[in-house]
């Protein structure tokens, strides 16, 4: 749905000439690259966060907007100006397993989430780096109790051990990131994953890929800036020279 400027505002093309439209397209492209860069910085910052899943965004190019309008939509003539980041989705591909040997480190191999009871309600996480409360309850590192399959708290045995089977595993379609390694959502269906003890799921950030994307994004941003410069120059000539008696050296 995110094609260019919001639908409520009149289409830029309605009252602007083509040249101005180009300015808006280039500027919105620059804004989209800025936001993408912020997401990439966040991904890199989380290169060591257990169970972290990188954000991926598609970008609607100007060409995509045109195509979207020719295939069954209104005529190409009434497009909105601009480029926008498409829907951001979280790449849930399981990360690599890192053996830690710690009895309270757990990793999910395959799909699924652990559930924790926070003050805001049940939240889900793939970060299985757990600890114990003074009451002997298994908690995440924020102190929120980890839940079993029936939604009850998990007790830690006298030797500080928890069997991996005691932890609940939930499938959460369309889970939304909340920060603190937590996801919000509603669990439904059966997860295919299984719980492993003594390991953590590494961050899903592919550093090399993100660095490349960062450079690509930077260069697209730069092209946007140069497009604006050129259109600006053209407009400047149109404003100062067209209609001038001396125009064209005549």
């Amino acid at each position: 749905m995110r094609h260019g400027l919001p639908k409520e505002s009149p289409s830029a093309a309605d009252h602007l000439g083509d040249m101005d439209l180009g300015l808006y397209v280039a500027a919105s492209g620059m804004v989209a690259e800025q936001v993408r860069q912020d997401q990439l910085s966040n991904d890199l910052a989380n290169a060591s966060t257990p169970g972290y899943k990188p954000d991926e965004s598609t970008q609607h190019s100007f060409g995509d907007v045109l195509l979207a309008n020719t295939s069954g939509g209104p005529d190409v003539g009434s497009i909105d100006a601009g480029v926008a980041l498409g829907k951001t989705y979280t790449n849930m591909t399981p990360g690599t397993m890192q053996e830690t040997g710690e009895p309270l480190d757990f990793a999910i191999s395959g799909s699924g989430f652990f559930a924790v009871k926070t003050a805001q309600g049940v939240r889900y996480t793939r970060d299985g780096q757990f600890t114990t409360s003074a009451q002997g309850v298994l908690t995440d590192t924020n102190g929120d109790p980890v839940l079993d399959q029936s939604g009850a708290e998990v007790k830690v045995g006298a030797k500080g051990q928890v069997s991996p089977g005691a932890l609940g595993l939930f499938e959460v379609p369309g889970a939304v990131k909340q920060g603190e390694n937590l996801y919000a959502g509603t669990s439904s269906g059966k997860p295919s994953g299984s719980v492993r003890q003594g390991a953590l799921e590494g961050s899903g950030v592919d550093a090399a890929k993100i660095m490349v994307e960062m450079i690509t994004s930077l260069r697209s941003f730069q092209s946007g800036q140069q497009a604006i410069q050129s259109i600006g120059q053209t407009l400047q000539e149109a404003a100062s020279q067209v209609g001038s008696l001396n125009a064209g050296g005549g």
Binding site: A27, S28, V35, D38, D55, S57, A84, T88, K177
Partner: peptide, 9 residues
Amino acid sequence: IAGTETSAG
């Protein structure tokens, strides 16, 4: 912002 509706960490 400018038609981009998403979130950034």
